[in-house]
Computed example of a mutant assay.
Amino acid sequence: MTVARRDLDAMRALRALEDGRSSVRLRAALAVGTEPDPRFVDKLVERCAIEPEFFVRDMLTWALTRHPVSLTLPGLLREVRSERAQARSQALHTLSKIGDRRAWPAITWELLSDAEDDVARSAWRAAVVLVPGGEESALATMLTTQLGRGERETQLSLSQALVALGEVTAPALRAATTASDPRVRAHAIATQRLLRDPDAGFGLAIEEAKRVVALAGAPGTDDENRADR
């Protein structure tokens, strides 16, 4: 293929990423990832921030992972500081897929506690992937401050992140079972169960934990013991 033909194909692909039809955008993202080109990186990052369709966004992320990290990392690190929630969320999601730990300093407390649940969930997943060895316990402590937050999908995401960190989360979860907020206590107890048995269903775990907390009435160290019965 001649240089002129490659340039023409690249321009067509870039235009197709903005097509009004999601199917066309999806094919364009696939094409861009199949034949990586440095000229695509900025457009891919830009499109992630505004693409309305989940499957297209996922393909955009895949296309970015096909390009050298040296080209993708700077733009993604800028996006995690964007005022646009989707830009932050998708950049964090992409960083978790790339898995380069040089991105770890960008996973700030502000992102881990972002007011937008989608952003916070993406930050939790990215943090678990990127956390340097030896800092897992500190991360677990930070994550447990978010226990009890949001609806079931958000709570499940946080529990999965804590479980992925492993046994280092046990002390922080144990402390959270004595919190004054019953939602926090229930979420901590449910996460403890998932930590012991990752195959256990979260729905059953959280409902049982809520019953335990309701029966306990007040925070105390007996909560976890009740949950084991």
Rank of each mutant, 00 (worst) to 15 (best):
L111W: 14
I98M: 01
L139E: 10
D118N: 14
R102H: 05
L139Y: 10
E136T: 03
T141Y: 05
A126H: 10
S157D: 15
D100A: 04
E153Q: 13
D118G: 15
L139F: 11
H93G: 01
G150H: 14
P132S: 15
P132E: 13
W124H: 07
D118I: 10
R152A: 07
L162K: 00
R125H: 13
S96H: 04
L147K: 05
S113I: 01
A120Q: 05
K97E: 15
R102M: 06
P105G: 05
T108K: 09
G134D: 03
G133Q: 13
E151C: 08
R125T: 09
W104K: 15
L143P: 14
T145G: 12
A127C: 06
L95N: 06
D118P: 11
L158G: 14
Q160C: 13
A106M: 11
D114M: 02
E135M: 03
R149A: 02
D114V: 00
Q155V: 05
A138Y: 00
A120K: 05
L130W: 01
A127Q: 06
R121L: 09
A106E: 12
M142G: 05
M142E: 07
P105D: 08
R102F: 00
S122A: 14
V128S: 06
M142N: 04
D114K: 03
E136L: 03
R125K: 13
D117I: 12
T145K: 10
T141W: 10
T154G: 15
L162M: 11
V131C: 13
R149W: 11
V129E: 04
A161T: 07
E151V: 15
L143A: 12
Q155K: 13
M142L: 06
V131W: 07
